[in-house]
């Protein structure tokens, strides 16, 4: 185990960013989000970023290929696969788990080369959540916020940051920044912190949610259930929930005219939008009820059906905080009787 004084964090960030691009939670214009580190950037220790770190591997919009047309001939130029080495610091356990969900999608055959390169080039430094909040329910998905499973796990306790490499990539990063870290046998301190976190998590209001009845075989039982009508009645179809969600991965592919060619890019999209499935002769999901149901059925039934029971939700609670009509996946689970309390 290694440590560094909190007051010396900028030394750590300086050392990391000397050899690669560092991203960390930074507060800008009142919003905490993962941002590229530059000298002087201050780490924000709030529990949650507004947007999840999925941008690291699946940017909100990214160029994939361009077309140039001269004398009727079309030249196709794929955009460069990213090669920068990156480190993302301060990722919470739920968000670390969300990477596994994204991997299932983007790394399954045929793998997405852009995502794959970004993922391979990145070292993830996770931070345990000293104070999980009311909107958190990661434990329902078997995630332990006291012990994030990334390349490096860190804990903020008192005036120090405790640092422990968990993978080869993590060891390498640790070696690279060894000069600013102090080796210390601090297992006792960290164990005490973990126990404290576990106790908080146990008593969170949403910790009693139960996923009983939600699995890959639940389509018949859930699809035509009357609950959807009330749940979806006031949904605005704004898509905020999908944009802040670390596991939502739907995207659109579009072209724009740059003036000297056509650039094709992909960008986040939302199954909550009415044009998402629109075809020339109409859409199979004309009502908001259908679109709403699709989002939750996908996360709790269809995704597990294809991924060995893995849910496409990590209980980060962002949708709980951000939905303008206060609808969210926790309420959906509850409405179907999923509350053990």
């Amino acid at each position: 185990m290694y440590t560094i004084e909190k007051s010396k964090l900028s030394d750590l960030f300086g050392a990391i960013s000397a050899s690669c691009e560092l991203y960390l939670p930074v507060k800008k214009a009142g919003q905490n989000n993962f941002t590229k580190y530059e000298a002087g950037t201050e780490y924000c220790d709030e529990l949650k970023t507004v947007k999840s770190p999925k941008d690291m591997f699946f940017p909100q919009s990214e160029n994939i290929v361009s077309f140039e047309k001269t004398d009727g001939k079309i030249k196709v130029t794929p955009d460069t696969i990213p090669t920068e080495k990156t480190v993302v610091f301060g990722v919470r356990a739920c968000d670390v788990a969300s990477f596994d969900v994204l991997d299932r999608v983007f790394l399954s055959e045929p793998a997405d080369s852009f995502y794959k390169a970004r993922r391979e080039n990145c070292t993830v430094v996770a931070t345990a959540c000293s104070e999980p909040e009311e909107s958190c329910f990661c434990s329902v998905f078997g995630i332990d916020p006291s012990e994030p499973k990334a390349d490096v796990a860190t804990w903020f306790v008192g005036e120090k940051l405790y640092w422990k490499a968990l993978t080869e990539k993590g060891e390498e990063l640790t070696k690279a920044v060894a000069s600013v870290l102090t080796e210390e046998n601090a297992d006792g301190t960290v164990e005490a912190e973990k126990a404290k976190i576990k106790e908080i998590v146990k008593n969170l209001p949403l910790a009693s949610l139960s996923l009983d009845g939600w699995d890959g075989d639940a389509t018949e039982a859930k699809f035509d259930a009357p609950e959807w009508e009330k749940l979806s009645a006031s949904c605005l179809g704004c898509g905020a929930c999908t944009f802040v969600c670390p596991t939502c991965q739907c995207y659109d592919i579009r072209d724009y005219d740059t003036g000297h060619g056509i650039q094709r890019y992909r960008c986040w999209d939302s199954c909550m939008y009415n044009d998402f499935t629109m075809m020339a002769h109409g859409t199979p999901r004309p009502s908001q009820l259908q679109r709403f149901r699709q989002r939750f059925m996908h996360k709790l039934v269809y995704f597990p059906a294809n991924n060995d029971g893995m849910y496409s939700c990590v209980g980060c609670g962002r949708c709980v905080n951000k939905c303008p009509i206060s609808m969210n996946i926790a309420k959906v689970i509850k409405a179907f009787g999923g509350d053990k309390s």
Partner: peptide
């Protein structure tokens, strides 16, 4: 996308 990633053509599993 055509490759099971963009989510658009998802129906059930």
């Amino acid at each position: 996308c055509g490759i099971g990633k963009c989510g658009r053509c998802n129906i059930g599993s």
